[in-house]
Design a binder for these strands. Structure first.
Length: 279
DNA sequence: AACAAGACCTGCATGC
DNA sequence: TGCATGCAGGTCTTGT
């Protein structure tokens, strides 16, 4: 489920639910997700007060009052739901946080590709999962010339470069496809061929696509008392992702678009694009 | 050094 | 209906 916009949506939900609150109890119902929980995980969290909730790439960072940070990654299928106690229990609900104001925060993850870790705040930057992350695409420093610099000399397909978290942090398979469509650039083009105006267009497209998805998720949060990225995805209509064979929104059924959106495999993942509008 | 491929794990849609 | 197959929003590790 989660790329940057969905993680951001979950972060916002957790921020409003948790900042200033204490964990009355924490229950890990199994010893691991993708990795084992750190030693004393539940005990170390119990009684802690949440001071802040931040996001870095697709990671959720929950800052606690003892100068530690709870690091959460949602993997492919991780979900977070906040509800008044007692929360509905589901089959893959692996971690349950109870707060001092009567809320339950449940983490569910069928595939268990997600993970959690506890880190000293001072060591956050050197955490092995965070240390090599690239630029935040929504940060003010991210623009066309910065993007061109990151792509320069790279012989990988452009789509693969967008998915490389060491270059840009937070773009996943869906928004890589969508941003390339908006920028009119083929996912197969070599990354190093994108500079100048093409890089400008792509940087703008990335920011727009991510920003609109966050706006969609954020607006749905007001109506549902959940921090769930699923809502953002549910509301979003993709132009090309998962639309193999359909006419893309830019082509309006023109003769050159007879085959519609094409699906190819790149680095083992599906890429959707319009060969007519993306060059 | 850079890149592709396999691995992790479960659920779901599809086709026979 | 049952079963096999392929695919899924991520990223770490291994092999070329």
């Amino acid at each position: 489920m989660p790329e940057l916009p969905e993680v951001e949506t979950v972060c916002r939900g957790l921020r409003s639910a948790l900042v200033g609150r204490r964990f009355l109890s924490v229950e890990a119902r199994r010893p691991d997700l993708r990795f084992p929980f750190p030693d004393g995980f539940a005990a170390r969290l119990t009684g802690r007060r949440v001071e802040r909730v931040d996001r870095r790439a697709k990671y959720i960072l929950i800052g606690l009052d003892d100068a530690t940070v709870l690091l959460i990654h949602l993997g492919m299928s991780g979900r977070v739901v906040v509800a008044p106690r007692p929360i509905h229990r589901d089959a893959h609900q692996h971690v349950l946080f109870r707060t001092d104001d009567g809320q339950d925060v449940a983490y569910s993850d069928a595939r268990r590709f997600g993970f959690m870790d506890l880190v000293a705040a001072a060591d956050l930057g050197s955490h092995p999962r965070l240390i090599s992350l690239g630029i935040e695409p929504l940060s003010p420093e991210f623009d066309g010339s910065r993007l061109a610099g990151l792509l320069a000399g790279r012989k990988v397909p452009l789509k693969a470069a967008l998915l490389d978290q060491r270059l840009i942090a937070g773009i996943g398979n869906i928004y890589a496809c969508e941003a390339l469509f908006r920028a009119g650039l083929s996912p197969r083009r070599l990354a190093r061929t994108v500079s100048g105006q093409r890089a400008d267009r792509l940087a703008i497209a990335i920011r727009q696509v991510l920003g609109e998805a966050i706006a969609a998720g954020g607006s749905s949060l007001r109506d549902y008392v959940q921090a769930s990225g699923e809502l953002g995805y549910f509301q979003h209509r993709w132009a090309v992702y998962d639309r193999e064979g359909e006419v893309c929104p830019g082509c309006n059924g023109g003769p050159a678009c007879i085959d519609g959106v094409r699906r190819i495999a790149q680095a083992g993942r599906s890429t959707f694009y319009c060969p007519r509008r993306q060059r």
